[in-house]
Write a protein that binds this DNA or RNA. Sequence first.
DNA 1: ACCTGTTGTGCTAACGTTAGCATTGCTGGA
DNA 2: TCCAGCAATGCTAACGTTAGCACAACAGGT
Lengths: 388, 388
Amino acid sequence: MLTLAQQVAPEPAAPLPDHAEQHECYRWHTEGDDRGTSQPEGTLNVITTRDIAERLGISVSTVGRALADDARISEETKFRVRQTASEMGYVGNRAARMMRGASSNVVALVIPDIRNSFYSTIAHELSKNMAAEGFQLMLSETDDDRMVELRHLRELSANRVAGVIIVPTARPHSESVKLLRAVPHLQLLRRHPSLGSQWFGVDDREALHRATAHLVALGHTRIAYLGGPEELPTGAERLRGFRAALEEGGLADDAGRAELGPPSSVHHGREAVRRLLQEPAAPTALVLGSIQLTLGVLEELSAQGVKVPGELSLVGFGDEPGFSWWGPGLTTIGLPIQEMATSCALWLLRRLKNGPENDGPYTSVSPGSLVLRGSTAPPDGKASSKSS
Amino acid sequence: MLTLAQQVAPEPAAPLPDHAEQHECYRWHTEGDDRGTSQPEGTLNVITTRDIAERLGISVSTVGRALADDARISEETKFRVRQTASEMGYVGNRAARMMRGASSNVVALVIPDIRNSFYSTIAHELSKNMAAEGFQLMLSETDDDRMVELRHLRELSANRVAGVIIVPTARPHSESVKLLRAVPHLQLLRRHPSLGSQWFGVDDREALHRATAHLVALGHTRIAYLGGPEELPTGAERLRGFRAALEEGGLADDAGRAELGPPSSVHHGREAVRRLLQEPAAPTALVLGSIQLTLGVLEELSAQGVKVPGELSLVGFGDEPGFSWWGPGLTTIGLPIQEMATSCALWLLRRLKNGPENDGPYTSVSPGSLVLRGSTAPPDGKASSKSS
DNA sequence: ACCTGTTGTGCTAACGTTAGCATTGCTGGA
DNA sequence: TCCAGCAATGCTAACGTTAGCACAACAGGT
């Protein structure tokens, strides 16, 4: 069978190595019989307004104004300029324009990890809304490391991004705070007081409160919570919601068990749930506090063949594609990320258009919802309501 | 119970509306008793080298050289400049530097949709590798629309990005081709001849060939393929692999049935598999040609309660978290996206460092692998090998 | 005393674009 | 005939940074 590489280059067929053995196979073609351009790429001399002006025998100003559709330029000149610009492949230089005081058309999204579907959804909504208004999106991943965050913010500042939407690390560096102060910005999901009071988030406490209360109502008395560390604002809120629900349910202090750790580690989710199940008085119910942890827990429970909700009732976090078909269907905490992201985008766009006017403290809290499926039941093992 | 908003603003508690009813609740605080800075944000006058020079009574050149750690500047001056720069919160203006011929430190990733985990994995790897070398990542989503793609490429060109990694649409606009020609670029996964011969992709044909051959070997004689349109290079290759395997298996022409459609529509996956199962001579096996279609199919089969592999053998595409715990475990086509993305990043970095030298046609083809789980079996219904 | 080299710094131009002001040629009213 | 007014365009400076060249001060060798 022919492979793609062989189709592309009609050289004598050097058979490809075994697929199972290596991951990549490189091919340098020595001759350029390829359909692609033969010009050295990336070396194209860039066209400026001056080039156009010289070609047409007019001044740079006129060219600039014609391209900007200035009213003072005759239609005929405009037409000739535009035509020539197009012919010569002119592309305006935004860096030069920026130096004349214009602001950039780039906004940045600073998040822990784009692979988390939470954040990729946000990135998508943001990108879509921003692109519609002519803005480009810059993506910076912090990996929840404040120094990485700082490095990114330095770069973003140097690039003079017009705005920043950030899911901050637990305790941003003081220089990060300074840098953000010079740019319209918005905190998302997590909130750190030093970064100002523009914040869009979810009511984490309420969300976990409802999830936990649901388990309490079913009659569970040994409930565990597995979530992010308390130093993260979201982690702290979620833990509070969990504890509050236990307290309100009149459960003893030792009824609840909280296991905190890195929230974006699938691996940690697997480890933690394994430990929990091996304990002498293992919990009969488990609430989760992050998507990645949920993914890990689901993997581990599947692997171990734990019966849900028979042996363990489970409330997940977030609502990923696989959650609905996992085991009996995963009861989970659903969050309106898409709507939130859109709101963020619109807020930032308005802020960028209107300037700092009316730019007082601003906060938007979205509530979560409890999506009831089959993974929760009373502790005796009888399945409860099952609906999607 | 208190909500976050109330904690943030100690105003008389206006009770939050019912959570189930609305998605967001806005709060404008009229007074700034917030901990955040009281400076008008985003209005900070930006510091330039000139400001530093004036403060120290030296020339801009000296400041510039001190900051660039030029050997000709005395250590003492360097120290004073750096200190003052830090004090004043100086952040170099990359736009100005770019005008002096320096290239930008931004590379762009142009993809259909970041929500596809395929692409978010790529974005992550790219971002990580690029950030390590001081590059920032710009994200552009095309939604598989060539005009959107064009608009993005225009913006990217205006911003003078240093490089572009692109998953092109089926038939890029001729202006897109021109624009890309001026920038070091690299095609990923999909390949369009007009965009040159730098390409990293997977052996789509081989991957689908193996998946289909696996089903043929099990004894299936009515096999369906559900994948992207033939106009996409990946779509065409996958279809070819599917057909080739059928042919080699000695099956009649009508044994195979190909259903083509939008590859990134989960909804279309659901619809299509529903139609397939209702047909008079419904297929006994199904191979999929995209992640999103696979997600749709899994949802639909779960919802309908179709027995897999009893009633239908299934080979998915990609390897998402949920695939291993879906039903009996999904046999699927695994692709080394992570490794591919890393290779892309390294290639582009090398290209950016070394310039166009040695920049001939280049192609890298990664093979896929068949991950055997429980969703495939002989047509009589007996389960085959089950391993993860 | 002169030349040479070194060290540290300043001056100036240039990158591509745009905004303010000046200039040219023309039309129409006094 | 002269000038106001307008339309169309040109000239120049400025944005912040950097590279090339010039310059000043001083040391060491002849």
